[in-house]
Design a protein around this nucleic acid. Structure first.
Lengths: 177, 177
DNA sequence: CTGTAATTTCAGTAGTAACAGAAACAACAG
DNA sequence: CTGTTGTTTCTGTTACTACTGAAATTACAG
């Protein structure tokens, strides 16, 4: 069991809280927070005791974090214990989360909307509104998706640059093309 | 009780499903979906019977949707019943959601991180990592917040334009300034 | 003031997701 | 092959959030 500085503890608790508001399991988020600030990779047992959660809970949470690409396993030479290391680059974390959530949720939504639109079009004579509205929403999601694609295609270097431009974005939007 | 087209029903169910994955109450999301596609404003009773949920549940959900700025009340002349109308402009919906979630969640997070960073700095001699990492995360959230501010400052007209530029954004990021 | 239509609040219930602990499983050293 | 170390799976329990139905409240017409 590691003992956390007050700041670390506060951050971990808040991160867990945030997670649940965004549909992420609290423990998963807490483990992510812990591994993000941890000076070196931790094993499952350390994580469990530090956060006071069951070993088994840590195991499943770590699997999920690995699926999200937020945590990776490292080994010591000759040792068979798994150590877990959090991704440290905040932009990479951001990209990983955006990529996963889009794939898991936005993509299916695009599919459903596309089908609904086709379906609504067939009977648009007696219900023109549904068709129109679903179409607008579908277009919106397509735009969102194209933004996502552009964002994820950027290299880490470009992303870092982008994060410093800031107000230029607005200008671009104002001038149009 | 209105009867929904298959497309409408499917959309409402999916929207509710999506809501819960993003930390939004399923019923709230379903009502939002229903009011978004409804041809005209509906009263609470119609909503309750159409979605098969308790009248009281509809009442609290509608309050929440009004708080999010996604639904507004309309009245008929001389009638005392409340009718509810969903915002129809998808970009306005998007803006409303972004604005609310930032205010409710990102702003508090910024506050917590700022405090954690100050706190961690005081003991950075014995724990330099925590301080560094929290600082990077704080910077990230500040960037995110500046992006949000720029987005929300755009007029609806500008937003519509922005949604059509698409690939230009990438170019901008590539060229830097 | 009384009755009626409409909405909201509240307290108990139900349904769901997270969790702990035990048991099963895997990998490997000796 | 056996014991040890480590990880995962599974089942019952707990805690929490959403939800219902009833009671209270509000607004107003007559």
């Amino acid at each position: 069991m590691l003992n956390l500085t007050p700041a670390a503890e506060r951050f971990i608790l808040h991160w867990g809280e945030m997670g649940s508001r965004w549909g992420v399991n609290r423990t998963v988020a807490q483990i992510h927070a812990l591994l993000y600030i941890a000076p070196q990779p931790l094993d499952a047992e350390q994580i469990a005791s530090t956060l006071s959660v069951a070993r088994s809970n840590v195991s499943t949470s770590l699997r999920e974090l690995q699926a999200w690409g937020l945590v990776k396993v490292v080994h010591t030479l000759g040792g068979r214990r798994d150590y877990f290391e959090g991704i440290r680059d905040v932009w990479q974390i951001f990209r990983a989360i955006v990529a996963e959530r889009f794939q898991r949720e936005i993509e299916p939504t695009l599919g459903v909307l596309a089908e609904c639109v086709t379906d609504a079009e067939r009977r648009k004579e007696d219900d023109p509104d549904t068709w129109t509205r679903l179409g607008q929403l579908h277009d919106f999601f397509k735009t969102l998706d194209s933004w996502r694609r552009q964002l994820l295609e950027l290299s880490p270097r470009e992303i870092k640059r982008a994060s410093t431009i800031g107000s230029k974005v607005k200008n671009l939007l104002r001038t149009g093309s």
